[in-house]
Design a protein around this nucleic acid. Structure first.
Length: 419
DNA sequence: TCTGGGGTCCTAGGACCC
DNA sequence: TCTGGGGTCCTAGGACCC
């Protein structure tokens, strides 16, 4: 049996955890740049606030019902996630951290005790100790455990646990689930499946698995097997090495000129390079892209992209910034209203994999020393205390975050002392 | 006026190898 | 005049996830 532990309304619950006055009050969290809704408390859902709606469409509604809205605070959510996962490991020894707010756990070996009371106790303690309520679904496969979790949220909210442990419960869960709500079936596949008269998880569980592979893909074939109760998506207990690290952000206001965008790009590159070093990787390549506002019906659209290979795989920020800005120079055109710029470090490998380029002088040792000291100074004195000149100081492009809460758990200056 | 960001996996087709 | 078969690797694009 496999369990999925899912935090309820995670971002909204994190905000609420540090502001008890928000209990019982409708709360929403905005996407970066305060653009759209990405999390809602139960109360906000009941008031008809949908997921991914642009803020300007619900501004009125928010005012009328006094819905509290917050800019997303990923530093806070990331740290809360770490704490919750630490607690989860007190109750389950085999855990796959699946996303910021979800973990799959193995319930193998629990046949010898009362599975329900063990999971229920774990659920209550994880919720209580972390301050973020969680729900647990348990079933023979990952896909079915997701269904179980959904049922727990919809029908057994107060209990917070649902287990599919009989044929009867499996069939019932399949009948009451629409294919569009299935893990692994998105918008496109839903439309195509509907054309074959497949509307519920039950319909899909009845199709021939070879047919699913032939007409769709192995991905859908696996989903069909999993719905039938045959597990074929295993728990991944070891986190696979990252392949890419990327950063893109929308500008607070449209940009037209090269310089401010190069400045934004240099800053995003500095961020991904830090992340790269923290994880002990070097990057073999770098990709840069630009984009106009794809929602506009009247603006000219332009979404260029360029990929280059580093001379030597590296984690040296000044080099990466130089390459990124060179790339930007190639794809930038005057005359567009730009909405975002992005950068991705690709072809990641361990930094002890010391590939050397025959035609480059061996200056790597010096770079390592420089970057090590820079990271140390910035860690002690704050990010970007030492920065590349290209990163600038103006930052007129920076995203909107008008209702950002403090980084309660991670930044010294934000910790509130109660006397 | 105003619409997020960071990832992964799969597939088909082309280039290339012997 | 007539020109194979089996395989790998890479890339772009599509689809999905939270």
């Amino acid at each position: 049996m496999i369990g999925i532990i899912d935090c309820n309304n995670f971002y909204a619950s994190c905000e609420r955890n540090f502001m008890p006055s928000l209990n019982g009050v409708p709360v929403v969290v905005f996407s970066n740049n305060d653009g759209a809704i990405i999390a809602r408390s139960e109360e906000a859902k009941e008031l008809g606030i949908d997921m991914a709606v642009p803020i300007f469409e619900v501004k009125k509604l928010m005012k009328v019902y006094n819905i509290k809205g917050f800019s997303s605070n990923y530093t806070l959510y990331g740290d809360m996630s770490k704490r919750i996962k630490y607690i989860i490991r007190k109750f389950f020894s085999e855990v796959e951290d699946y996303s910021i707010d979800e973990s799959f756990v193995s319930c193998k070996g629990f046949e010898y005790r009362d599975l329900f009371s063990y999971v229920k106790d774990a659920r209550d303690k994880i919720s209580h100790w972390s301050g973020v309520p969680v729900t647990i679904g348990v079933a023979p496969t990952k896909t079915l455990s997701k269904l179980a979790n959904r049922i727990a949220k919809k029908k057994f909210r107060a209990i917070g646990v649902y287990i599919i442990d009989s044929e009867e419960k499996r069939i019932d869960a399949l009948h009451t689930t629409d294919i569009k709500d299935l893990w692994g079936v998105g918008r496109r596949i839903t439309v195509r499946l509907n054309k074959f008269n497949i509307y519920t998880a039950y319909d899909l569980s009845k199709v021939d698995t070879d047919w699913a592979k032939k007409n769709f893909s192995v991905v859908l074939q696996r989903t069909v097997y999993e719905l039938q109760g045959i597990s074929c998506i295993p728990l991944e207990l070891v986190e696979p090495a990252k392949q890419n690290i990327a950063s893109q952000k929308s500008f607070g206001i449209f940009q037209t000129e090269f310089e401010p965008m190069a400045e934004a790009l240099a800053n995003y590159t500095a961020r991904v390079a830090e992340k790269l070093r923290r994880q002990g990787f070097v990057a073999g390549g770098i990709t840069v892209w630009l984009g106009t506002n794809n929602f506009s019906k009247t603006d000219k659209q332009y979404f260029p992209e360029i990929s280059t290979v580093c001379d030597v795989p590296t984690d040296y920020t000044p080099y990466l910034i130089k390459r990124a800005v060179e790339g930007l120079k190639v794809i930038y055109r005057k005359g567009y209203l730009y909405k975002r710029v992005g950068v991705m470090l690709t072809d990641l490998r361990n930094n002890y994999d010391g590939t050397q380029n025959l035609f480059h002088s061996n200056s790597r040792d010096k770079e390592i020393e420089i970057i090590r000291r820079m990271d140390r100074i910035n860690r002690l004195n704050g990010r970007d205390t030492i920065r590349s000149a290209q990163q600038g100081f103006n930052h007129e492009w920076k995203m909107r975050q008008e209702t950002l809460t403090p980084k309660y758990t991670t930044r010294l200056s934000d910790i509130i002392i109660i006397k």
